[in-house]
């Protein structure tokens, strides 16, 4: 990932937030990891002129107030953010959720790993993939 871009984690579960932060640190990911608690907070952040627009969003599905799918739909129907890369990062194994996510327009769907080793591995993969990935200018 480009050193400048910020990664936004949309996640309500404090454990998962803790795991992601630890994995981020353990893997020495240089990009800042910003955290919001649900879809609504995510949209507020994106709409706020004061805030920097994130370069990548990691989005949980099952969240209170506004879930990940609704949030993704809002992002994709907003011509300012429609191009933002969104990785659905979910504990949901249901194939319907996978299908629906891609149909709405996620860039990737990753199942939350069961062990911390796997999580670190996943974080490294995401980092190295997006580091090489060319993104349109925000």
């Amino acid at each position: 990932m480009n050193n400048q871009i910020e990664v936004l984690l949309v996640e309500d579960n404090p454990d998962d937030i803790l795991f992601m932060k630890r994995a981020w640190r353990k893997c020495n990911i240089p990009n800042p990891l910003r955290i919001v608690r649900n879809g609504e907070e995510c949209l507020n952040l994106l709409n706020s002129a004061a805030e920097q627009t994130p370069g990548l969003i990691l989005m949980d599905i099952d969240m209170p107030v506004m879930n990940g799918l609704d949030c993704l739909r809002q992002i994709r129907t907003n011509h300012v953010f429609e191009h933002l890369p969104v990785i659905m990062f979910s504990g949901q194994q249901i194939s319907d959720a996978v299908d629906l996510s891609y149909r709405i327009g996620c860039n990737s769907f990753i199942e939350k790993p069961d062990t911390f080793d796997d999580l670190q591995h996943t974080v490294r993969l995401i980092h190295s993939y997006w580091q090489r990935n060319r993104l349109p200018l925000a």
Binding site: D15, G91, K112, D114, T115, F116
Partner: peptide, 16 residues
């Protein structure tokens, strides 16, 4: 789904 999250948490905290 709901069971997997705590199981994952238990596993991870054990690792920590």
């Amino acid at each position: 789904h709901d069971f997997r999250a705590p199981i994952r948490a238990v596993n991870n905290y054990l690792t920590f």
